[in-house]
């Protein structure tokens, strides 16, 4: 793998990194709002609505609350944006060009995923607003709740594939054998990873840290104008990245070496995953933080450990 610096920048900034992911991510939020509206028998927003929202926010004022450290408060969302761009680049490149994966990129992906909640917590707790701080503490508990099942879910597929740590190799394994989703252990791992990702995105029933009706947006409460636009964009990109993550690790990726129709159908997999996410989002009430903790540490953790044990026996 000999990549020139120019190509690296192209991957990172244009395709499949920042630009591509943000456009598709914003379209995903449109799908989200449209499907939600249709479920509620409404008409829903026009296709370009997320882009209007984004550009509108760019044109507005920004407040930095009194007593908040400027650099952390304004810098945190930018770090989040950067880490999601890198994350989506790594995931997409390793599926589009499986040869270019580097050793241990799985670990890098895990760390980059952890960055988003950390950045949100940092920004919210530096805003010197008690309600934001409440949101930050809830985000922290939620992070602790879903991180362990997520690790077990990934450990399951690593054990199943016989100790592969490269995303490219994992994909290769799925292409020669079968997607992990189609085995007992893989299905359990998928279900638990899916629930963890719902919490990672901060969607109902796990939108406890934002809880608009209760703590007024919690972690995003103090943000306004362009910084809020960056936060919304990060969320949108994360939305897309999560669907790619689940397809790449459990469903054999969106692009496989097989040619023909299968090729196009592969791009529908992430879409199917987000429709599932939206359906769960629209049919559940918000949990309390203690209920969410109990849910992840009893049911989801048991599910993922069961999957792990099944994988060690080879199922």
């Amino acid at each position: 793998m000999n990549m020139s610096v120019g190509w690296v920048f192209f991957y990172l900034l244009v395709f499949p990194g920042f630009l591509f992911t943000s456009v598709v991510g914003l379209l995903y939020t449109w799908v989200d709002r449209k499907v939600t509206a249709r479920i509620q028998f409404r008409v829903g927003p026009p296709l370009l609505q997320p882009f209007y929202d984004f550009f509108k926010l760019l044109g507005k004022d920004t407040f930095v609350p009194e007593g908040a450290p400027r650099s952390i408060f304004l810098g945190a969302p930018l770090i989040g944006l950067a880490s999601v761009s890198v994350l989506s680049t790594v995931l997409l490149v390793s599926n589009l060009f499986p040869g270019q994966a580097f050793a241990g990129d799985l670990i890098v992906v895990l760390y980059l995923f952890a960055f988003v909640p950390i950045v949100l917590i940092l920004g919210a707790s530096s805003s010197s607003n008690p309600i934001s701080a409440l949101g930050a503490s809830r985000e922290m508990s939620l992070y602790l709740a879903y991180e362990l099942p997520l690790l077990f879910a990934l450990a399951t597929i690593i054990v199943k594939s016989g100790g592969l740590l490269k995303i490219g190799d994992l994909l290769q394994w799925q292409w020669t054998n079968h997607p992990f989703l189609y085995s007992a252990s893989g299905a359990l791992a998928f279900v638990s990873a899916f629930l963890c990702m719902q919490a990672k995105l901060g969607f109902v029933p796990f939108d406890i840290a934002e809880a608009e009706q209760e703590i007024m947006g919690g972690i995003t409460l103090e943000y306004s104008g362009p910084v809020l636009a960056v936060l919304k964009l990060t969320k949108a990109m994360l939305y897309f990245t999560v669907s790619i993550f689940l397809t790449v690790f459990f469903w054999g990726g969106f692009r496989s070496p097989r040619e023909g129709w299968y090729h196009i159908l592969g791009w529908l997999k992430p879409l199917a995953i987000i429709v599932l996410i939206i359906l769960i989002k629209n049919t559940n009430p918000r949990l309390r933080i203690d209920q969410a903790l109990r849910f992840f540490w009893s049911i989801v953790l048991v599910l993922s450990i069961a999957g792990f044990i099944l994988a060690t026996v080879g199922l």
Binding site: P45, P46, Q49
Partner: peptide, 14 residues
Amino acid sequence: VERFGLLLAASPRH
């Protein structure tokens, strides 16, 4: 009114 892009915001800053 979401047809016209109107949404309820959680905080006055949004």
